[in-house]
Nucleic acid binder design. Structure first.
Lengths: 179, 179
DNA sequence: TTAACGCGGAGTGATACAGTCCGCGTTATG
DNA sequence: CATAACGCGGACTGTATCACTCCGCGTTAA
């Protein structure tokens, strides 16, 4: 299993659809179906982004999500921590005090400060986190935008707008593609 | 659970006991009991270090392990990869091709190259791995040595030598501390 | 009133981790 | 030459997490 989970992958992919303010206020179901992932699973992810101040939620029908701040101020590290809760790269078990020559009574010099192995892992974790802190939703969106044709964002907006409008209309009428 | 597991923690702790050549050739059971961890579990870890060329194994009674190269040439990254097998930080599910507007037939521009989110995670993983590659068994041993009193390595050598000598003698005689 | 929304809690199946047990071939020692 | 400890690999167990689902609550526009 990977350290950075599918929850983060899903979260970032769906946050990217919110970068363009013209997207309005899609629901988590809208985003999940636009992205082709499980709606009920995504519904467990977005409340965490809301509590972290990454996204703003609106209640009731016509409710949904929008970014709580400019995408250039939302780092990937922020998203990862919001969804996974600052999961450490390494969990030190404090093995150092269990050396047999200590006979179950480790001296102070052996247990004070941070374990030497733990320190190495903490530096690696710091390097990883600093790398993630340099990337933002805006920087990822820019990469995607460079690859996609100009027509793509328009198509996505159309899909979203049609879906939001259909919340209270097309459910009582027919589906767009007929019965 | 953490990305870098207890196997790595146990492995590094026990490799540190092999840094001093005067330790001879302790068995995995010797190392496990010296370190206060499960012997049968450590016995699953050291064969991986052997296959990676970090450690040399000797068969038969009086067999055991010694470092296969100088501790300054054994990086922590090497140890992690040997034990865990280059486990990725993030496993991309290629969600990008599942956008609803593609209608199950994603265009080439959407699926060529590395996914923008995956690229971010790969850079973070690279930063982590580069950090781990800068640390060696020797550098960790130096930190530990700075904290321990001069008498400590001597005590450890004594414990190990007594144990290795006891392999064929004290089993047939009494235990050192009486019956 | 209805229906869709956000949200939280409980539950499920699969996988990985920590740890154990057993058996094989090898090798110094009594 | 038998023994005992060694390295090594395979099969196994229990637990925790992950991906995912289901249900019910209060909220809100049509």
């Amino acid at each position: 299993m990977a350290h950075i989970t599918a929850r983060v992958e899903y979260g970032i992919h769906c946050l990217l659809w919110l970068v363009d303010p013209a997207s309005g206020q899609p629901s988590s179901r809208d985003l999940a179906e636009l992205q082709g992932i499980s709606p009920s699973f995504l519904a467990k992810i977005f409340p965490r982004l809301e509590k972290a101040g990454i996204v703003q939620a609106a209640d009731g029908i016509r409710g949904g999500y929008r970014l709580a701040k400019p995408p250039s101020e939302i780092t990937v590290l922020e998203i990862v921590d919001a969804i996974e809760g600052h999961k450490p790269l390494f969990e030190c078990q404090e093995i150092r005090g269990r050396c047999a020559v200590f006979d179950n009574e480790p001296p102070d010099w052996a247990t004070t400060g941070v374990c030497g192995i733990h320190a190495v892992m903490l530096r690696a974790e710091k390097a990883m986190r600093e790398s993630l802190a340099q990337e933002t939703l805006a920087s990822i969106a820019a990469v995607v935008e460079r690859k996609a044709p100009n027509s793509f964002p328009v198509e996505v907006q159309g899909w979203l707008v049609e879906r939001v409008n259909g919340r209270t209309s097309s459910r009582s009428r027919k589906l767009p593609n007929g019965p």
